[in-house]
Amino acid sequence: MTAIKELKATARAKVGKGAARAERRAGRVPAVIYGDGKAPLGISLDYTEITRTIYAGHFLTTLFNVDVEGEKHRVIPRDYQLDPIKDLPLHVDFLRVAIGATLEVDVPVHFVNAEASPGIKRGGTLNIVSHTVALNVPADAIPDAINVDLTGREIGDSVHLSSVALPAGVTSAIHGDDTLATIVAPSGLKEAEADEAAAAAAAAASAATPAKKS
Rank of each mutant, 00 (worst) to 15 (best):
V105K: 01
A145K: 15
A13K: 15
M1G: 12
A202P: 09
P186F: 08
G70L: 09
P108A: 11
A101Q: 06
V164S: 14
E115S: 10
S163T: 07
V97H: 05
R24K: 05
R12S: 00
A168Q: 14
A199F: 07
V32N: 03
A114M: 12
T171G: 08
I76R: 06
K38P: 01
T179R: 14
S162N: 11
N113Q: 02
D46A: 04
K190D: 00
G18Q: 09
V170K: 05
K190C: 01
L135N: 05
N127P: 13
H160W: 04
F111A: 11
V68Q: 09
A9D: 12
A19L: 06
N65Y: 11
N65K: 05
R78W: 03
P167H: 07
F59V: 05
E154G: 06
D195K: 11
A205R: 13
D178L: 06
A192P: 01
L41V: 00
Y80I: 06
K17A: 09
E154R: 13
A200W: 04
H131W: 07
K212R: 12
I155R: 02
S117V: 02
A22Y: 08
I146D: 07
V105M: 14
A13M: 13
I54V: 08
T102F: 06
S214A: 13
A168I: 07
S172N: 11
A204H: 10
A39K: 06
I146R: 06
K72L: 12
